[in-house]
Each structure stands twice: as C-alpha cells, then as structure tokens.
C-alpha cells in the first residue's frame, strides 16, 4: 500500500479541489509573463490539451490547477518563445517524465496494436458480414423443414 496521504493528495485534485494551503498563486504571479507570437501561441494552445498533468492525472496540462502544471505551462511557453518545435517540447517532457505525459501515444512497436486495433476490428467485422452473406447465398432456397430447435420443441411438447 503506497502511503495513504500521498493518495489523498491525488484524490483531492482529482475532483478539482485545491488544498487550501496552496502557495502556487503567489509564486506564479511573481514570474514575468512570456509573450508568444500568434503562431507560437496557436501551437502552444493546440499542444497543451494533449499533455497529461502528473499531479492531477485525469486532467490535461491545459486544465489542471496543480502548481506543477502551472510551472510546466510556464516552461513550455518559454520553450516556444525560444523557437522550439512541438517535437522539442514533447521531448523536453518525455525526457523528464516519460511517455506518460503524452495523451496521444506516439506510434511505435508497442503502440501499433493500440492504433490499428479498432480498425482491424472493423475490418474483421466487415469480413465476417461478407462471409455470412456469401454463406447464406450458397444455402439459398433453404429446405422447407423446421429447424432443429423447433423440432425439439415439438418433440418436447409431445412428451
């Protein structure tokens, strides 16, 4: 059992409840704002919802009110201001926190099944439907005898 208190902290933010002793606001307001140009700002806005907050793990960095999330937002703005690409930003985060921070798993051998799975399932389903139709066509004009189940029922009732 990992520490109960540790778990409690997660649960608190899990419901967007911020502990009252939060000190982040003062620290945050002390930092000078980072100004991005329109294109950088757009990329920042687009990427943020795809990043997972590590403290409030069911929220994105865009939504989380955790103080770490605020720090990371500031870092990411700083990276974009220095001309970083989306990939640079993702690498900055995965180097520190691992793939866990990416809400959109990158395509790799271990995620191939994840990305292909639903479409393979749909294809398999379509193939099964086609097979079913073909089988039905082959056995077209079914013999006019009751099926086994109906037959058994008749026999049961006769007993």
């Amino acid at each position: 059992m990992p520490s109960a208190r540790f778990a409690v902290r997660f649960l608190l933010c899990a419901a967007l409840l911020v502990p009252t002793f939060h000190i982040a606001a003062q620290v945050e307001s002390a930092k000078p704002p980072i100004v991005l140009d329109a294109q950088q700002e757009a990329r920042y806005r687009a990427l943020l919802p795809e990043l997972r907050c590590l403290v409030c793990q069911n929220e994105s960095l865009a939504d989380s009110q955790a103080s770490l999330a605020a720090d990371l937002r500031y870092e990411i703005r700083g990276l974009y201001a220095k001309g970083a690409s989306d990939e640079d930003v993702k690498k900055f985060l995965t180097d520190r926190y691992g793939e866990f921070v990416l809400y959109r798993p990158s395509l790799s051998a271990r995620t191939a099944l994840l990305w292909a799975g639903p479409f393979l399932l749909a294809l398999a389903g379509l193939a099964m439907v086609l097979a079913l139709v073909r089988r039905a066509r082959r056995s077209a004009a079914p013999p006019p005898v009751p099926d086994a189940e109906a037959l058994r029922k008749i026999l049961d009732e006769a007993k």
């Binding site: 919802p49 795809e50 997972r52 994105s60 691992g98 793939e99 866990f100 921070v101 990416l102 809400y103 959109r104 798993p105 271990r110 995620t111 099944l113 994840l114 990305w115 799975g117 639903p118 399932l121």
Partner: peptide, 28 residues
Amino acid sequence: AGGVLLGTLYPLVLDALGLGKLSVGPPY
C-alpha cells in the same frame, strides 16, 4: 466499443507486461 475498451485498458496491458507506462487520452 472495442476501440474504447482497447484505449481504456492499453496502459494496464503494457504495465502488466512490464513494457512501461503510457497514457491514452482524448486525442487517441
């Protein structure tokens, strides 16, 4: 439904197989 199930359980599968942690979120 299969896609939703796969995405929901995939982090668990990888973790159970010792292949590390990842997140499957809204973009997926």
